[in-house]
Design a protein around this nucleic acid. Structure first.
Lengths: 204, 204
DNA sequence: AAGTTTACCGGCAGACCTGATTGTTTCTTC
DNA sequence: GAAGAAACAATCAGGTCTGCCGGTAAACTT
């Protein structure tokens, strides 16, 4: 016969996970404005009391959701194995990886939080360090894929990061377009065009 | 002695203008989530009754704010005279024009509405036609600046629009970065780099 | 095994916010 | 100039959302 109840730590972990996942769900499906703690609790199958016990305020819940989200996003990007295929197409592969990461529903949730954070100082403060971490990790992943030797403590080389950040910003624009129901075919054409240009400019 | 009260039409026009401007103000300053009809009325110096008289529902107010906003945005873009300077720098000028248009506070408000519209069918429906109009007009402006003969009823030439839409999406990504307090210097560098690439790829 | 801490429950109150409704004043029209 | 329409004012009612609080039971501590 199994234990009738989990250990405290397990319970905490499980409940927090349920809440954070439900939060992300709500952000994707309802958007930040319509996301209420009530609905989050309903989806998580957790009482409002429990929610408040783990995350005292809504802002706190959201702040933790960000970290949860970024962790998942980086994981999904790391999935695509950064095996450095030979050839000049590594730039194109890097772009594909970024598109994979930034075009899914996870990035939709992140976008909601970004926009909300613009006018919410508390949320903004919580996001800032996590955002920096995401940027750093993305840069590392990109360089790994390009086959560069990653020397973390080396002085910054902004030149090196140009293709990365051009791509990231373009992709964020495309992600926005996708959110609004733009034409997927045209998005692919644009991404394809960018890959061609990027390979020609930065490749090999 | 002047008329103690304006004519009906003038009053209507003025009140609507006040309300829509206040709405945009709220969107920029508070974000969509925290924008309430109450606050809009307060800023516009108009009673809630008046607001409801002109825009029955909040969604209707927002929907009209979009049009108001896009009109202003196009006006601000048209300001920059599309005088076709000679030389291959016309592409760079076009990019500058787009950046001018899409990087101000107007585009912040538009962004708020876009994100809100993702999960609000009514708002989404209202935005769709206006969005298409914006896209069409932007394309025309861009072509004018490039010195192309604009032949409106000509069959679509997607090839021609590649540099435009690559630029627009990149700029939207950069605008998002600006909203979140990214580094302005790096944004300039990225835009500069893109101009160089675009001129080399599409210029002259 | 008693006491303490922790996780969780569910109701409550205060603060908005939105849409509706009724009343008042001024313009317009006939 | 009288009737009707339009612009506006002000209050009301219904709903939702958030944060708080007292209570319970299980898990940990000693």
């Amino acid at each position: 016969m199994t234990r009738p109840r989990l250990t405290q730590q397990e319970r905490t972990e499980r409940t927090r996970e349920l809440l954070l996942d439900a939060t992300v769900d709500c952000l994707v499906e309802l958007g930040y404005a319509r996301t209420s703690t009530n609905e989050i609790c309903r989806r998580a199958g957790v009482s409002r009391g429990a929610q408040q016990h783990h995350f005292a305020t809504k802002a706190e819940l959201m702040a933790n959701a960000i970290e949860h989200l970024v962790t998942k996003l980086l994981a999904s990007m790391s999935e695509h194995p950064p095996s450095s295929l030979p050839g000049p197409d590594r730039v194109a592969m890097g772009i594909d990886m970024l598109w994979q990461g930034y075009s899914g529903s996870l990035s939709t949730a992140v976008m909601e939080l970004w926009v909300a954070a613009r006018t919410d100082p508390e949320l903004r403060a919580a996001m800032h360090p996590i955002d920096k971490g995401l940027a750093r990790r993305t840069s590392e992943l990109f360089r790994e894929m390009l086959g560069d030797q990653v020397a973390p403590d080396q002085p910054e080389q902004p030149q090196k990061d140009m293709p990365l950040w051009l791509t990231v910003n373009l992709i964020r624009g495309l992600a926005l377009d996708a959110m609004l129901g733009g034409d997927p075919v045209r998005r692919d054409q644009l991404l394809q065009e960018w890959k061609t240009i990027a390979v020609k400019t930065y490749g090999a």
